[in-house]
Amino acid sequence: MSDTKKFLLDGKPVVFQDGQTILEAARQAGHYIPHLCWHPDFPAHGSCKLCIVKVGGRHVSSCAMPAKEGMEVESNTPEMNGERRALLQMLFVEGNHFCPSCEKSGNCQLQALAYDLEMLSAHFNHFYPNRPVDASHPDVLLDFNRCIFCELCVRASRDIDGKNIFALTDRGIHKHLVVNAESGRLADTDFAASDRAANICPVGVILHKRQGFARPIGERDYDAKPISVVAMEEVEK
């Protein structure tokens, strides 16, 4: 009997080791499953649900679901991609995502995923929430309008930088990102532009000042190749 364990991803066998999640094993085998809140350096968060797959007729988050021998996983199917598109559309209407005026455009994972899944409109009614920016810090700007609540900055600041600068507060539609300072201002923390938390935002919330369009539109991460290709090249590195 063979030692290698396998499951089927869209009909193709994927080898995995015990303890790996579906997403980790698929990624290692060169198969892209869309994701936003998942990051290889952190435990699964399971909040964005973009990595949703169908296993035995049930929807599961592939970032959190351990791979099991003989599983049949559906990922790149019209049904799953349709659900992912609807999740993206909800993320777009909940915040203020004005791509034409965002300096993260072209480097933004939310936008790149919308391109990859061919999301042509937000479909739902926009919320247009009021989320003032925090420009108090000398080196970093916070534009809360674009936050998708992936908590990567919260986790990076707490678990890697040891500073615990960010948090999510309130619930449901009132949920928002806050800075852990009495004033609520980033300038009143020991946040630094070299922190991991300053360099992990998948969208355009945490922006380094005075960089803006130094790398012009057209020469950005997802301009030449779609995110499904770029993400797999990162695995090879």
């Binding site: 777009f92 203020n96 995502h97 004005f98 791509c99 034409p100 005026s101 042509l120 409109s121 937000a122 926009h126 247009y128 929430p129 009021n130 989320r131």
Partner: peptide, 18 residues
């Protein structure tokens, strides 16, 4: 057909919405 960011999302004029 909705043509362009403003027709599709409200765009720049919608930045007054809050």
């Amino acid at each position: 057909i909705a043509l362009g960011a403003c027709a599709v999302t409200g765009g720049l004029p919608a930045q007054r919405n809050h």
